[in-house]
Simulated assay, not measured.
Amino acid sequence: MLWKCWLNKEARYQLLPVEVGMERTHLGRLPQAHKGKVTGLCFTDESRLLSCGVDRNVKLWKIGSMYSGSSIDHQRSSSLFATASTLVQVWDETKSAPISDLTFPTSTETVSSVRFNQSETSILASVGSDRTFTLYDIRTGKAERRVVMQMRANALSWSPTFPTSILLASEDHNLYTFDIRHLDSPSLIYKGHVAAVMSCDWSPTGTEFVSGGWDRTVRIWQTEQGFAPEVYHTKRMQRVSSTIFTNDARFVLSGSDDGNVRIWKGKASEKLGIVTARERAAIEYRSSLVERWKMDKEVGKVVRKRHLPKPVYAAHKLKNTMLDSRRAKEERRRKHTRAGESKPKAERKKVVLVEQS
């Protein structure tokens, strides 16, 4: 069975089954898990759950008997887990004190998200309030590399298929993929949101990822395509603060400020019931036709068109106008710069301000 956890503002949590066709009722509730807001949850295995809160406590719960910093993440292959607040600490489930403190010497940040690499499990990454993105190695017990970005990153997620690739959701409305071997500039920039991107998560297949933003939309992106994502929205959904793919890559879960958890299909046109061989052949045939003729003007227009809510559409038009003006200004500067003088930087080179090691 597939389980997902959802936090609320009353220091409680609920454990919900998200398998389609099951009864939509919560299975357990702990009235006072923490004193104050619960800020992070993760599973250690199928029967145990870790939680952390603003009361500076980390608690381990056994799901069989009771359900139950700012971020928390568990290592895939051992009993180690990491918590983040004003510093990053690594813990062992069998011990009541942290086994190591991971901080950068000049860091004054409040860490908002921390994640273990899924393949190289000794590598840990975090993003903080002072616009930093930091890589740690728990074997050496210190921060290895750190970059200061132009704007703050709100969330991060490691690629499940490429261990050196990491995804960042930024305050500047964009998402960035970085190769951790070359942190001087992002590998690709994903543009589409018209407000701060608050969350991101890779699909288990590694071919796509989901993001949720302050513009009240959920978007699904193809890995090597930095534009034209699938856009999900509803009339009553507010700012999206959490998004995640299910383990079978068929569904996306989102949590928003209106207090609701929503389940979306990973592919909007996919049939949920049993698909016969004849239906599957017809679906594949239609998909191949679209792929073959997508460069045609009329077909491409239908393929690329996405309906947006009126406020998002208006914000999108305004943002495009501002970007076009900025682009024209940069082009004029580049054209009239004298030979030998420093020219304006390319867009990718502006994302990272300083790289430290």
Rank of each mutant, 00 (worst) to 15 (best):
V18C: 12
E19G: 03
V20I: 11
T25S: 11
P31S: 14
Q32P: 08
H34F: 04
H34I: 06
K35N: 07
K37S: 06
T39W: 02
L41G: 09
C42I: 00
T44Q: 10
T44C: 13
R48T: 14
L50M: 08
L50A: 12
V54K: 10
D55P: 15
W61P: 15
K62Q: 14
I63V: 15
I63W: 12
G64L: 14
M66A: 12
S70T: 12
S70C: 15
S71E: 01
S78K: 01
F81Q: 10
F81P: 10
A84F: 07
S85D: 12
V88T: 00
V90I: 14
W91L: 07
E93K: 13
A97E: 15
A97W: 03
P105R: 04
T106E: 13
E109K: 09
R115K: 15
R115T: 04
F116N: 14
Q118M: 15
S122W: 14
I123P: 04
L124Q: 08
S126Q: 08
S129L: 04
F133V: 07
I138T: 03
G141F: 09
R146L: 07
R152E: 14
P160W: 00
T161H: 09
P163T: 07
A169Y: 05
E171W: 05
H173Q: 13
N174F: 02
N174C: 03
N174D: 04
Y176Q: 06
F178I: 07
I180H: 08
S185R: 15
P186W: 13
P186S: 11
V194Y: 11
M198T: 05
S199T: 05
S203T: 11
G206W: 06
V210N: 00
G212K: 01
W214R: 00
D215S: 14
R216C: 12
R219A: 02
R219G: 02
T223A: 11
Q225F: 10
Y232I: 08
H233K: 13
S242D: 01
I244K: 08
I244L: 08
A249V: 03
R250F: 14
F251M: 05
S254Y: 01
D257P: 10
D258W: 06
R262C: 00
R262H: 02
K271Y: 05
K271L: 11
L272P: 05
G273H: 04
I274F: 04
A277V: 10
R280S: 07
L289D: 05
V290H: 07
M295D: 14
K297R: 11
G300K: 14
K310M: 02
K310S: 06
P311S: 00
V312C: 13
A315S: 00
D324F: 09
R326P: 01
R327D: 06
E331T: 12
R334S: 11
K335V: 02
H336N: 10
T337E: 08
A339I: 15
G340F: 08
E341G: 05
S342D: 09
K345M: 09
K349N: 14
V351P: 08
Q356G: 04
